[in-house]
Simulated scan of single mutants.
Amino acid sequence: MFPKIEKLCRIFESECDLISKERKEILKSIAAMIASEIDSRRKAKLIYICTHNSRRSHFGQVWVNVAAEFYGLSSKIEAFSGGTEVTALHPNSVTALKSMGFEVSTTTSEANPKHDVKFGKQKSTTCFSKVYDDSENPNKDFLAIMTSSHVDENCPFIPEALSRFATPYEDPKLFDTTQLKDVKYLERALEIRREVFYMMSLSGSKKDNAQK
C-alpha cells in the first residue's frame, strides 16, 4: 500500500470521536451484516449508491476496498458503486483522490471513461459512472449503501439487495463553482474514509473478532 494512504488508514482511530453516536449505530449495523456474510462463507459485497455516481459513491467504493486490504479482508469484502443516472467520475473527485495519495489513470477514452484508482503497487479499483444495477456490479446478495438523501428518498427499494442502509453525506457538488471546491471534496472524501474505517474495523467474522 502506498505510504501516504497507509498513513490515512492508521489515523482513523484518533478521529472516532468525530462520528456521532447515531451514525456509529448505523455503521455498526452495516458491519454486523458484513460479518454475517463472511460467517456464511460468502464474500460480502457492498454497492455505494448516489444519484450520479460521480462523487460520494466512488469515495465509498474506493475506501472500502482500501480498508479491506488494510484489515486483511480483501478476499472477503469487495465494494462497488452506482447511481440512478450515468454521468462520469467528476474531475474534482479525481483531484481529491490524487491529493490523498492515490494514483489515478484513465484507461478508456469515451465521455464516461474508466479510471484505474491505484492504492498500492498492485492494488487498485476501477471507477466509472454507471447505474447501480449495471452488469459490472453484483446483481444479488449485496448491501446497498445510500450516500445521498435525494437517492435515499427517491429510490426506497433496491431489488435483490440483502439490506439497505442510509448514510447520506453533504454533496461536494455544491462547491463546484467556488474557490472551496478542492477543500470540500477532500473534506468529504476524508469523512467517508473515517466512517468506512470505523465500520470496517468491526467487520471481521465472529472467529476473526474472537482472535483479536
Rank of each mutant, 00 (worst) to 15 (best):
I19F: 03
V151T: 11
Y48H: 12
S57C: 02
T177H: 15
T125Y: 13
N139I: 14
T125M: 04
E25L: 06
S74E: 13
M200N: 01
E78F: 07
D208R: 12
R164M: 04
S75H: 09
K184V: 12
S203A: 06
V64A: 04
N65L: 05
E78T: 12
A67Q: 07
R164Y: 08
V64K: 01
E187S: 14
L143H: 08
F175R: 12
S129H: 03
S129W: 01
F80N: 04
G120F: 06
A166K: 02
M199H: 03
L174R: 14
F165E: 00
F2R: 14
L180F: 15
V151H: 05
K28L: 01
N137R: 07
I19R: 05
L174F: 10
F165W: 10
S74N: 11
K121F: 12
F197Q: 10
A79W: 10
K212E: 11
C155V: 07
I47Y: 09
R23W: 01
P159F: 08
Y48P: 02
Q122N: 15
G101R: 14
K24Q: 01
T177Y: 14
L89A: 14
R56Q: 09
K140P: 12
S29Y: 00
I30E: 00
A88Q: 12
V104D: 09
N137I: 03
V117K: 05
Q122R: 09
L73E: 09
E191M: 14
D17T: 09
G101Y: 12
F165D: 04
T108D: 10
G101Q: 11
F157D: 10
E69D: 15
K7F: 11
T147F: 09
E195S: 01
G82Q: 04
R164H: 11
R23T: 03
E85I: 03
D39N: 08
E15R: 12
Y71L: 05
R164P: 08
I145Y: 04
K28H: 04
V131A: 00
L46N: 01
I30G: 05
I77T: 08
N112T: 02
G82S: 04
L162H: 07
F59D: 05
S54N: 06
I192T: 02
V151Q: 04
I26A: 00
D176Q: 14
E160G: 08
R164E: 13
T106I: 05
F175M: 11
S149Y: 06
P91E: 10
H150G: 03
K123E: 13
E25K: 01
R188V: 15
R55W: 09
C155S: 14
D141K: 13
S29R: 03
K173I: 06
T84N: 00
